[in-house]
Amino acid sequence: MDTLRLPAKMEHLDRFRSYVLDKAAHWGLDDDLLFKIELALEELIVNVIHYAYAEHDHGEVEVGCSLVNDSILHLCIQDWGKPFDPLARPDPDTTQGINERGVGGLGIHLVRRMADQVTYQREQGCNILNLYFQIPKECLLPIEN
């Protein structure tokens, strides 16, 4: 899998976005699926930017994107910051009213709902998140003879 590794800074969010979306568009995925992939990517990258590293620690984030068996888009996001398993967090209470509702915690909830499968591993000082998006058959570009 080829990857893109850059400092975990907000100014690079767009590079990661273009990197993944250019590939996904190239593979012919439709707008709804692109929306889901983009949303999951943004939430996780922004999470790393905000929380993984101490303020003056110039940490990096790496994104990989590949097609598996022509039916699954695999997104891999890695950072070398403090251990953080987003899947261990409880889902926010989405039934609360405007006044009670806290302003955070929705990002990871959205990621879980956008991707078909999400896994987390901590390996050799690295947080590894693997996301899998099932590609509906009609999304694929037809084979041209």
């Binding site: 568009a25 190239h26 012919g28 692109l34």
Partner: peptide, 22 residues
Amino acid sequence: RRVSRIQPNRAPKCLRQGHAKG
């Protein structure tokens, strides 16, 4: 095998509108 080309009408809207990447 799939044909490797970008279908302009399938690219995300922001890319479609001619915004250069990065």
